[in-house]
């Protein structure tokens, strides 16, 4: 029994780190643009497909394809922001939200057109390796996810705190009007932020996609989890996303393993609904 719980717990943390990376971009985008990006799952999906194509089509090494895919997806994000979202930033907040829904539809169906509906693998050599720590079995990929996840989160933290661009992003998040008044090009910041958020989503797609297969609808399931994480952690809060992601991963794995696998996804929804109703600011209140 202890072994099972230990296994589930470690698996949960591994998944949790994956959720953290998947949600980090979403919370950063919300912090700056005050928009919940409903196409977030689709950028995740694009990351998986791009990585898959880079590996299978161009023969690139997984560890090279991964960051490259993230960059490509981030770039696509910037383009999407400029075309679809930037002109809408002074409209009522539901309007850009609808636009991200439109983006989601376009990206999802576009992906289906380009790559077809059948699942395809994201070939990672680490997926085949098994690592044993005591009673716990993990694939190398899961370990890689934790490692890269930890590195990414730290880098993002450092970036936001110390890099000029990062500070600009934080300034724009705290006070868009004030930032514009002191001469910050808020439009550019919005573009970079969206690109960063989408790039992170793409990265997590390339990472998590290797543990299963890539298929066009994969983003939809992840999107709900990402919403759950950032709502749990508090919209706009990076530390919140970290806590929330780990918490969700753990709860899902343990409860799912011990109770019922069919309703595993239910936990995300239950989390979202309970938190929004009882503690809407999340576990860690976002620094407003």
């Amino acid at each position: 029994m202890i072994d099972l719980v230990a296994q589930l717990a470690v698996l949960g943390i591994a998944n949790g780190v994956g959720y953290v990376v998947a949600s980090l971009g979403l919370t950063i985008i919300f912090g700056v643009m005050r928009v919940v990006n409903f196409s977030h799952g689709e950028f995740y999906m694009l990351g998986a497909f791009t990585a898959s194509t880079l590996i299978a089509g161009l023969g690139l090494n997984y560890l090279v394809a991964l960051p490259l895919a993230a960059l490509i997806v981030g770039f696509i994000g910037i383009v999407c922001e400029k075309l679809a979202l930037a002109p809408l930033h002074d409209r009522p907040p539901l309007t850009p939200l609808l636009a991200t829904l439109g983006l989601s539809i376009i990206l999802l169906n576009g992906a289906e057109l380009i790559w077809g509906a059948s699942p395809r693998p994201v070939q990672s050599p680490f997926e085949q390796e098994i690592i044993v720590i005591g009673p716990v079995y993990l694939t190398g990929q899961r370990v890689l996810i934790m490692v890269i996840g930890a590195i990414t989160v730290s880098l993002i933290g450092v970036f936001l705190r110390y890099a000029t661009a990062g500070k600009l992003i934080r300034a724009a998040a705290q006070n868009p009007e004030g930032a514009a008044l002191v001469g910050i090009d808020v439009d550019a910041v919005r573009g970079i932020t969206f690109g960063l958020g989408c790039g992170l989503a793409g990265l997590s797609g390339g990472l998590l996609g290797a543990t299963a297969m890539a298929y066009p609808f994969m983003g939809q399931a992840v999107a709900i989890k990402a919403f759950a994480v950032i709502i749990l952690g508090g919209l706009g809060s990076v530390p919140g996303a970290i806590l929330g992601g780990l918490a969700l991963g753990l709860v899902e794995a343990i409860a799912g393993g011990l109770l019922s696998t069919e309703y595993k996804d239910l936990f995300s929804y239950a989390v979202i609904i309970s938190v929004l109703l009882f503690r809407p600011s999340g576990l860690v209140s976002a620094r407003q």
Partner: peptide, 24 residues
Amino acid sequence: RLQGPYFAIVTLGFSQIIGLVITN
């Protein structure tokens, strides 16, 4: 009890729950 994007997310969640319940 919610508004805006929060209301949207929650209603999405409920419809997914309905789908899950019907499936299972």
